[in-house]
Amino acid sequence: MKLVRKTIFWLHLGIGLLAGVLVLMMSVTGVLMAFERQIVEKADGFHITATGNPLGPEAHLDGLRTAKQPPSSLGFERDATRPVVYQFGKEKAVFSDPYTGKSLGNGNTAVRGFFKFILSWHRWLGREGASQATGKAIIGIGNLMFLFLLVTGVFLWFPKRWTRSGVKAITLLQKRLKGRARDWNWHNVFGFWAAIPLLVIVISGTVISQPWATTLVFHLAGETPPVQGERKKPAPFTLPESLAGLDAAFATVKSSNPDWQSIQLQLPFAKTATFIVADSHRGRPDLRRTITVDLATSGIVKSEGFDDLGPGRQTRTWIRWLHTGEAGGLPGQTIAGLAATASAVLVWTGFALSFRRFFKKRRAAA
Rank of each mutant, 00 (worst) to 15 (best):
F192I: 04
G310E: 07
V94Y: 00
L246N: 04
A194Y: 03
K68Q: 11
E77N: 14
V345A: 05
R82A: 13
A364F: 08
G63S: 10
Q228P: 01
F351Y: 13
S303F: 03
G283Y: 02
D183I: 01
E230A: 09
G245K: 05
S27Y: 02
A251T: 10
T334Y: 05
E36G: 09
V293F: 00
A248K: 12
G329H: 07
G113W: 04
I170R: 15
F192L: 03
L265N: 03
F76M: 06
Q132D: 10
A365F: 06
T214S: 14
A195F: 12
K90E: 14
H47C: 07
W321K: 14
Q333M: 13
W157S: 05
D308Y: 01
R357M: 11
A244W: 11
D183Q: 05
S73T: 12
K6S: 15
R282V: 14
T238W: 02
I8R: 01
L13W: 13
T100A: 08
I201E: 01
A19L: 02
Y86C: 05
R356L: 08
T224K: 14
P197H: 02
N185K: 01
T252I: 06
T109L: 07
S298V: 08
R82D: 08
V31F: 05
L61D: 00
P234I: 07
K90S: 14
A366M: 07
T7Q: 10
M145F: 14
K254F: 08
I139F: 03
E41N: 14
L243I: 09
L149D: 08
L287D: 13
S73K: 05
V301N: 06
S131V: 10
M145D: 13
S354R: 00
T163G: 15
S96W: 11
P268A: 04
K42W: 14
V4T: 13
P240K: 02
I118F: 09
Q210R: 06
V4S: 14
P211Y: 09
E223A: 14
T341Y: 04
Q266A: 12
I139H: 02
Q228D: 10
I300M: 03
S96K: 11
P98A: 03
P234Q: 10
K360V: 08
A344D: 06
S27P: 01
D183E: 09
G126I: 09
I8A: 07
V347Y: 00
G20I: 04
A273L: 03
I118V: 15
K102M: 08
F355Y: 15
A365Q: 07
G299F: 05
W124Q: 11
F35S: 05
G107S: 09
A110P: 11
V200W: 00
L295P: 06
T297E: 03
L11A: 10
I48E: 00
P311F: 08
T317C: 05
F148R: 01
H187E: 04
G89P: 11
A93K: 10
R78S: 05
L119V: 14
R123H: 14
S165T: 11
P258M: 09
K136N: 12
P240N: 03
L246Q: 02
I276D: 07
K160E: 15
